[in-house]
C-alpha cells in the first residue's frame, strides 16, 4: 500500500489552544482511517487544513506526492480530495436530486451553457448515486425537509459524486438516530468499498470506529497519541482512560451530539 496523503509537522493554534502541535500522519491508499479524540482536539481542523480551508502555521501536507498547502479548496477538490461536513452543507432550496446532480455537474464541467441541470446525463447518474445511498425515494424532497440521517447521507453522497480518491468525513454518524446508525455505516462502507475510495473519518462513536476503520489515530493535545488497528487502540488502557473515558467498546454511544459527547 502506498501513502496517499502525508502530513508532516503540522502546527496550528487558535489563541492559546494548540489544535495541532507537530502532527505527522500518513493515510494509506485504500484504507479507512478513523481519527478519534476529545471534542476540540483539532480533528476537524485537520480536515480543514487538508482541504485548503485553513492554512497551518507550520508543516506540510502532500497528496499523491504533491504539496497541496496553499491551494484553494476547489483546486484540492479537483486534485481528488472531497469532504463531507459535520453539519450537512446542502443546497437547502434545491431537491435532493438537484443537489446530487449539481455535484455531478461540478465534477463533469465545463458545462454546456444552456442545457438544463436535470438533463438525461446528470439525472441518470444522480439517480444511480442516490439509489446506492438508499436516498432515491427522497429524491424529490427539498433538502431542508430531510431528517438528520438522510441529510448526513446526502451530504456524503455529494462528496462521493465528485469521484474523489480520498474522502474526508467529519463525524459521518453524528446526529443520526442510534437505531439507524449501523445501517448508515453499512451503506457507507458498501458504497466506499465499491468505489475504491480511501476514507478518513472523524468519529466519536467507538462502535462505529470498531466496525468501520482499518486503522485508528488518536488525536489529543495537538499530537497523534496512538495509531494502530482498532482492536489494539480501543483496548489500550491509556486511550480508554484519556480519550474514551469510561465508555467501553460496544456502549453504542447514544444518539446525536449529546450522546457522542458522552462517549468521549
Amino acid at each position: 500500500m502506498s501513502v496517499l496523503l502525508s502530513a508532516r509537522g503540522l502546527r496550528i493554534a487558535f489563541g492559546g489552544l494548540k489544535a495541532a502541535d507537530g502532527i505527522d500522519l500518513d493515510v494509506m491508499e485504500g484504507e479507512f482511517l478513523a481519527i478519534i479524540g476529545p471534542n476540540g482536539a483539532g480533528k476537524t481542523t485537520f480536515i480543514n487544513m487538508a482541504t485548503g480551508y485553513l492554512r497551518p502555521q507550520a508543516g506540510s501536507i502532500t497528496y499523491d506526492g504533491q504539496p497541496i498547502l496553499g491551494l484553494k479548496p476547489r483546486r484540492i477538490v479537483k486534485a481528488g480530495i472531497a469532504r463531507s461536513f459535520q453539519l450537512p452543507q446542502l443546497f437547502t432550496e434545491h431537491t435532493v436530486l438537484e443537489n446530487a446532480a449539481l455535484a455531478i455537474a461540478a465534477r463533469a464541467g465545463p458545462w454546456a451553457p444552456l442545457a438544463p441541470l436535470l438533463q438525461r446525463r446528470f439525472r441518470a447518474e444522480a439517480e444511480e448515486l442516490l439509489d446506492r445511498f438508499g436516498l432515491l425515494p427522497l429524491a424529490d424532497r427539498r433538502a431542508d425537509a430531510l431528517n438528520e440521517g438522510a441529510r448526513k447521507l446526502a451530504d456524503i453522497a455529494m462528496a462521493v459524486a465528485l469521484k474523489p480518491r480520498l474522502l474526508l468525513m467529519d463525524e459521518p454518524t453524528s446526529g443520526v438516530a442510534s437505531a439507524e446508525k449501523m445501517a448508515v455505516v453499512e451503506t457507507l462502507t458498501r458504497v466506499l468499498r465499491d468505489s475504491r475510495v480511501t476514507a478518513v473519518f472523524v468519529e466519536h462513536d467507538m462502535e462505529v470506529v470498531a466496525r468501520f476503520a482499518d486503522r485508528v489515530a488518536v488525536w489529543g493535545q495537538g499530537k497523534i497519541m496512538a495509531l494502530g488497528p482498532p482492536q489494539q487502540i480501543l483496548n489500550d488502557p491509556a486511550v480508554l482512560r484519556d480519550v474514551i473515558g469510561v465508555a467501553p467498546v460496544g456502549d453504542g454511544a447514544g444518539t446525536g451530539k449529546e450522546g457522542a459527547h458522552a462517549a468521549t
Binding site: 476547489r74 477538490v77 452543507q89 446542502l90 449539481l102 461540478a106 465528485l162
Partner: peptide, 8 residues
C-alpha cells in the same frame, strides 16, 4: 461553501 468544496 459547498460550491467551493465541489470545485466551483
Amino acid at each position: 461553501t459547498r460550491l467551493e468544496f465541489m470545485g466551483i
